[in-house]
Structure formats: structure tokens, C-alpha cells
Amino acid sequence: MLDDRARMEAAKKEKVEQILAEFQLQEEDLKKVMRRMQKEMDRGLRLETHEEASVKMLPTYVRSTPEGSEVGDFLSLDLGGTNFRVMLVKVGEGEEGQWSVKTKHQMYSIPEDAMTGTAEMLFDYISECISDFLDKHQMKHKKLPLGFTFSFPVRHEDIDKGILLNWTKGFKASGAEGNNVVGLLRDAIKRRGDFEMDVVAMVNDTVATMISCYYEDHQCEVGMIVGTGCNACYMEEMQNVELVEGDEGRMCVNTEWGAFGDSGELDEFLLEYDRLVDESSANPGQQLYEKLIGGKYMGELVRLVLLRLVDENLLFHGEASEQLRTRGAFETRFVSQVESDTGDRKQIYNILSTLGLRPSTTDCDIVRRACESVSTRAAHMCSAGLAGVINRMRESRSEDVMRITVGVDGSVYKLHPSFKERFHASVRRLTPSCEITFIESEEGSGRGAALVSAVACKKACMLGQ
């Protein structure tokens, strides 16, 4: 009897593995994704193909990295998701002549009506938060230079001027797309009239992360975010950046690689679950690469896999709870928690219980395998993109072996128990001629924006502006 049951459990697990095998990517698959990513990057950089390229390769006008001589107080704003952060950054000489960066910050959550109302409502709310922060720190009387981390696709015309191309991540505030974001912020500050600010720089969160990590390690020339969304930036040779005049030196390019796949480059790798996630998203047909990796989508992918296993009578005796059938019910943090389970399955059992399920031991094991399959594919897909960037940098610099540091931020990278190990191992397999160091950014977005502002202020002083 026991043997029969054991055989049935083994057969069930084997069927589960057959279904989950769809998520496995072979090294040849990853090399294919990497080569296609490089081709799209090239198209994004070139003037004649930029418009139709899915990977936009947006110039950021960040050319210099901090040298350690900029000092002063800077205000930093960070808008990239449902939370908005205001930070005071003091850049100065530390002990023994070292450079020191001290920060104080406060988080504000953005109400739904500000995210989806008008641009005026959104930026009025942001300036209200700045006003509140300055009151708390008794700094209303000071006109501070301000660095703005704005983590949406922007076409820069200068370091302090950028046109919002399109909202992502659930934002829909009308009247912002096609307009200068810094102008919208300046107008809102003017409307309030109770404080003055000098907006000197606007950067993407990947750029802010790279600059913040450069402060720790001067070989950091790539910034990457794996959180709600997924994106990367890197220092490109100016001669390859056709959208900006000049051939000397390097400029940081914001790849906006989340949109890779929007022209069909990933079609052969998309599964039924991916198509369902895409169809029910706020932007169907867009940001397809990001939807395979980002935390906004990972939990939902797992939920759809679990429903398939229920329908195949391989999980929960073929019956799903009402909660499990509800879109968004299986949160991405559950994926991390399930994979963090120590082996007694308590954590998995508790999560499934909150979803109205009474799982068996085998159910718990199957749910864990589903989570591992989805998150491992995410790590491997992400590795193909980064390997594409790094191999490109090595080739354009004609280096036999390139040493490089990548600064990384984002909740999936930082909080998932195995993502970074799987990701690092896969990147290294795909970049055999590179020695890569990964560092995690601390308060990256805010500190990085302030350091970019410090560079901009120093330049302005040198130019006598």
C-alpha cells in the first residue's frame, strides 16, 4: 500500500517536472537572447534605426563620474514606483581627507489618484512632500541643488532636461508624456511658492545606482535594477552614441532593455503563462523582457503555473481556492519566502493557508518547484541581457580580458534567497573573457542622484555659470 502511494507521488512529481521543464533555458538559448539583445542595442544607438529599435539606448548626458572633490548639501528625489523618497545628502571631506556622503531620508507613498490623475496632481503632491521634508529638517530658507531620480523612459536633451516617452509600472498621470519632466517639477514648486529649489540633474535609477557604486569602486561602469521592473545602464564610447554629437570619451546610456521583445525577438521563448500575464497587464505587448524578470510579474506567473497544475490534477487534489483564482493573489514576496523555507515546509504551508488552501507535504514541495522554475528562468533571462552589455563593452574597448564592476539594486536581487547566485553564475558562463565584480548599492537611487548633481554643480562652477 505504502509502495503504491510512494509510486503515485513519484509519478505525480515526474509529471510536474515535465510541465515545469518549459521554463528551462539551455545555454544556447541564452546565447541567442544575448546576441539578439546586442543587435537591438546597436539599432538603438544608431541614428537611422533608433526610432524602430525596441531597446532605445537613451543617452543620459552623464559623462563624468564623481571624483571626490564636490562638497555641499544636496536634496535628492526618487520616483520610480508607488513609494517616493526625499533625501538630504551631505557631501563633504571625511576623516583623513576621505570623501564622505551622509544621508537623511523619508519615504512617502503615492496615492492612487496622483498616479493615475493628471501630471499637475502628481507633481503638486511631490512638491508637497518636499515642503514637508524641508519643514522637518528646518531647511526651507536654503535654496538647495536638487537631483531627481526618475525611473521611467526619458529622452534627455541635457542633464536637466528630459522628455517622458511613456509611463510604465502602473503610472498613468495624463499630460506628462511628451513633456519635460524637470519643467513639470519646477512648475509645481513655483505653484507652491513656499520654498526654492535648483533642479540641476535628472537621472534614471540605473544611472543613480551606477554612480553610487562608483563611489565604492571606481571600476563600476554598469548599473542595473532588478526590482519591480528590470533595466540597466553602462558607459558607452561616445563615438557609438549617434544621437549625441561628439566622439570623445564616454557617456552613460540608459538601455531601457525592459522593452526588448516588443518587436518579436522573444516570441519563441514566451510561454502561455507569459501571454496571460501580458494580456492582463496595463501595457499589453510592451516591456516583454521586463515581464519575464521583474517583481511586478513574478508572483503572478507562479500563480498561473499553480492553476495549470491544479487543472492537471497534480496539486491540491485538483481544487483551487477562490483566493488562488484571484489575479495578483500570489505576491512576489511569497516566491522569495517559499524558496527561503528551511525544509520543514512550515513557511510554505503558512503562505498557502493564507490563500485558503490546506496543502499536503507533496503540495508544498511542488509549489516550491514552481517558484524555483519561474525565478530561475528570470535570473537566466536577466543574465543574457547583462552578458550582452558586458561583452559589447569588452569588444568596443578591444580588451582581451576586461575587469568590470556592476552596481545592482532592486528588491528581487536583494531579497530573493537564490536569485543573485543563479544570476551571477549564468552571467559568468556567458562572459568567459571578463572578470566581473557585483556590488549592491546602498540607498543607491538617492545618493547617486545627489552625486550626479554634485558633478553638475562642479561643472557649472568651472564653466562660470
Rank of each mutant, 00 (worst) to 15 (best):
L2E: 13
R5D: 13
R5K: 06
A6M: 15
R7V: 14
M8I: 06
A11V: 15
K13H: 09
E14S: 13
E14C: 14
E14P: 09
K15L: 13
E17H: 07
I19K: 02
F23L: 09
F23E: 00
L25P: 05
E28I: 08
D29F: 07
D29G: 03
K31A: 06
R36K: 07
L45V: 05
L45T: 03
R46H: 07
E51C: 15
E52H: 07
A53I: 01
V55Q: 00
L58H: 07
L58F: 11
L58N: 12
T60Q: 01
Y61M: 03
Y61T: 02
V62F: 08
V62L: 06
T65C: 13
E67A: 07
V71Q: 15
V71G: 09
V71K: 04
V71P: 03
G72M: 00
F74I: 01
L75E: 01
L75V: 08
G81T: 15
T82P: 14
T82A: 13
T82D: 11
F84G: 07
V86G: 06
V86Y: 07
M87H: 05
M87L: 13
M87Y: 14
L88A: 08
K90P: 03
G92Q: 09
G92F: 14
G92S: 10
E95S: 13
E96N: 11
G97S: 15
Q98G: 15
V101A: 04
T103V: 08
K104S: 05
K104W: 08
M107H: 09
M107K: 15
I110T: 03
M115C: 13
G117M: 06
T118V: 07
M121H: 04
Y125A: 06
I126M: 03
S131N: 14
S131V: 15
S131Y: 08
S131H: 09
D132E: 06
D135V: 13
K136I: 09
K136S: 08
K136W: 04
K140P: 04
K140M: 09
K143Q: 13
L146V: 15
G147H: 11
F148Y: 01
T149R: 06
F150A: 13
S151L: 06
R155D: 15
E157A: 10
E157N: 15
I159C: 14
D160V: 10
G170T: 14
A173L: 07
A173V: 08
S174C: 15
G175Q: 09
G178N: 14
G178H: 09
N180P: 12
N180L: 11
V182Q: 05
G183D: 13
G183S: 11
L184M: 15
L185W: 03
R186Y: 07
D187S: 07
K190H: 08
K190C: 07
R191N: 04
R191V: 04
R192W: 03
G193V: 06
M197T: 14
M197C: 10
D198M: 03
V199E: 14
V200P: 05
A201C: 07
A201R: 08
V203I: 11
N204Y: 02
D205E: 14
T206M: 01
T206L: 03
C213K: 01
C213N: 15
D217Q: 01
D217M: 01
H218A: 13
H218K: 15
Q219E: 07
Q219N: 13
E221R: 02
I225N: 12
V226P: 03
T228K: 11
G229L: 06
Y234A: 00
Y234P: 01
M235H: 01
M235W: 11
E237R: 11
E237T: 03
N240F: 13
N240E: 12
E242R: 01
L243Q: 08
V244H: 05
E245M: 14
G246S: 09
D247C: 08
E248N: 14
R250S: 03
R250A: 05
M251Y: 03
N254V: 11
N254I: 11
T255Y: 04
E256Y: 13
W257Y: 01
G261W: 01
S263C: 15
S263T: 08
E265A: 07
L266Y: 00
L266E: 08
D267A: 06
D267C: 05
E268D: 11
E268R: 09
L270Y: 08
L276N: 13
L276P: 00
L276C: 13
V277H: 05
S280M: 11
A282M: 05
P284Y: 06
G285I: 03
G285Q: 09
G285Y: 10
Q286E: 11
Q287G: 08
E290F: 05
G294A: 14
G294F: 01
G295L: 07
G295D: 14
K296Q: 15
Y297S: 09
M298T: 05
E300Q: 02
L301V: 13
L301C: 13
L301G: 01
N313K: 04
F316V: 06
G318V: 06
E319M: 09
E319V: 06
A320P: 15
S321Y: 04
E322L: 08
E322K: 07
Q323E: 08
R325H: 15
R327F: 13
R327N: 13
A329C: 12
A329V: 12
E331D: 15
R333W: 12
S336M: 12
Q337R: 09
V338H: 01
S340W: 11
D341T: 04
G343N: 01
G343W: 00
D344S: 06
Y349A: 09
N350V: 10
N350C: 02
I351W: 02
L352F: 09
L352A: 05
L355H: 01
L355P: 00
G356F: 03
L357N: 05
L357R: 09
P359R: 04
T361A: 05
D363S: 02
C371G: 02
C371P: 00
R377D: 00
A379G: 10
A379K: 00
C382S: 11
S383I: 01
A387E: 00
V389S: 00
V389Q: 00
R392C: 04
R392D: 05
M393K: 04
R397M: 05
S398R: 04
E399V: 09
M402T: 13
R403H: 05
R403W: 02
I404K: 06
V406W: 00
V406G: 01
G407R: 03
G407P: 02
V408K: 00
D409S: 14
V412Q: 07
L415I: 06
H416G: 03
S418G: 12
F419G: 00
K420W: 05
H424S: 10
S426F: 08
V427P: 01
V427N: 01
R429K: 14
L430F: 06
P432N: 03
S433Y: 13
S433K: 09
E435P: 05
T437F: 10
I439C: 06
I439Q: 09
S441W: 03
E442S: 06
E442C: 15
E443S: 01
E443W: 04
G446W: 13
R447I: 08
R447G: 12
R447N: 10
A450K: 15
S453V: 14
A456R: 11
K458P: 03
K459I: 04
C461N: 06
M462I: 06
M462E: 06
M462W: 08
M462C: 12
Q465V: 05
